[in-house]
């Protein structure tokens, strides 16, 4: 069974790029670009790893993450957070919210792939 990765991101070109890279790894990539409905989507269809952008229309990535951690169904979901705001404060906020891995845009494709692989390996079996 192929592993499933959920990508929540609103920048079309970045969705295309990440989608291309991960599908070449044989992963199934679901994408979603609206912050407000992200949590419902996740609960309904839990992925093995979540890649989450911070600046999203409607709801910030941090809020999505906090809600996710408060929900028993998704509390242990591995989350890789991507942010374009490269300040150390953002990393701290993300860690407090319970992020599993954190990357600053722009990133190297290889590095991003490594992080996803590591998170998949640590992901609990459902």
């Amino acid at each position: 069974m192929t592993k499933r990765v959920m990508l929540i991101e609103d920048e079309p070109n970045i969705i295309e790029a990440i989608g291309f890279i991960l599908s070449r790894e044989g992963l199934t990539v679901d994408t979603h670009s609206d912050g407000t409905t992200a949590n419902d989507k996740l609960r309904a269809n839990r992925p093995d790893v979540l890649i989450l952008d911070v600046m999203l229309p409607g709801k910030s990535g941090y809020d999505i993450l906090r809600e996710l951690r408060d929900d028993a169904a998704t509390a242990d979901l591995p989350v890789l957070m991507l942010t374009a705001r490269g300040q150390s404060r953002d990393r701290e906020t993300a860690e407090r919210a319970g992020v599993s891995a954190f990357m600053t845009k722009p990133f190297s494709n290889a590095e991003m792939l490594d992080q996803v692989r590591r998170l998949l390996a640590s992901a609990p079996r459902v």
């Binding site: 920048e11 374009a84 845009k105």
Partner: peptide, 11 residues
């Protein structure tokens, strides 16, 4: 700045 650069680097 980082958003377009992310696309550029990735592609």
């Amino acid at each position: 700045l980082r958003t377009p650069m992310t696309s550029i680097r990735a592609f």
